[in-house]
């Protein structure tokens, strides 16, 4: 990579990091807001019970369970965000592609949701694939593919992400419930990323699948 390309990578990478961070902090704030209201409601009910009689234990159990669930969901997001944050630690690292897909889906689910798109990780076809790559650049390519699919604002669209092996290559498959996978736009930066990571993008003939093919799997 020459100096100009590094500069571009730095600027675009920083913007990408900021976008993901803002999205994740927004999601955590939402969980905190729910916990705040559920805690407040428990408090209201206990104040009322002091005047009007006993609290319904089933109701209390349900509200407490909802709070625990919200904490677990936020923890899930924070763990995935921590994985993402550490991806800038090294320019090359061993990446478990399956773990990568899971974490990326968690931290980008909200980005898709605000466009009315349901994003899910597909664990049914789980395959352990590992590779040595630049994880932060790969995350940007994942984001580039996702943004492309959700950019049409197709409300009700469902996208599932899974990994697969093809000979010595790894694949990240974005399967869509509708044919939204148009040809990728010409973009200097994504071309640079694909060149650096030895990846290419293919669209299935029915336009329901976008496939990011990554060369150089390590076994």
């Amino acid at each position: 990579m020459n100096q100009k390309e590094w500069e571009k990578c730095y600027a675009r990478g920083l913007a990408f990091f900021g976008r993901i961070s803002a999205n994740v902090s927004h999601e955590i704030k939402n969980h905190l807001a729910v916990i705040n209201e559920l805690g407040g409601l428990l408090q209201d009910l206990s104040i009322m019970a002091q005047k009007d009689g006993p609290l319904d234990p089933v109701r209390v159990e349900s509200l407490a369970g909802n709070i625990t669930n919200q904490v677990a969901q936020s923890d899930h997001v924070v763990k995935a965000f921590n994985y993402f944050s550490h991806s800038v630690d090294r320019t090359t690292a061993s990446v478990d592609l399956d773990e990568f897909a899971q974490k990326m889906v968690i931290i980008t689910r909200r980005l898709a949701a605000v466009k009315g798109v349901e994003l899910a990780y597909d664990p049914e076809k789980k395959e352990h694939l590992s590779m040595v790559t630049n994880p932060f650049l790969l995350e940007q390519l994942y984001h580039f593919c996702l943004e492309h699919l959700i950019s049409e604002n197709k409300s009700g669209l469902k996208i599932s992400v899974r990994t697969a092996r093809h000979n010595t290559n790894g694949k990240l498959l974005f399967s869509c419930s509708e044919p939204v996978a148009r040809d990728m736009p010409e973009d200097d930066y994504s071309n640079l990323l694909m060149q650096q990571l030895k990846t290419r993008i293919e669209i299935s003939p029915d336009r329901k699948k976008l496939i990011l093919i990554i060369e150089q799997l390590s076994f």
Binding site: N30, A33, L41, M48, Q70, A113
Partner: peptide, 17 residues
Amino acid sequence: DDELELVSAMSERLNLR
């Protein structure tokens, strides 16, 4: 709000008042 648990709890708290 798209967070069901948030709006349902807020609604109940307002109703209690």
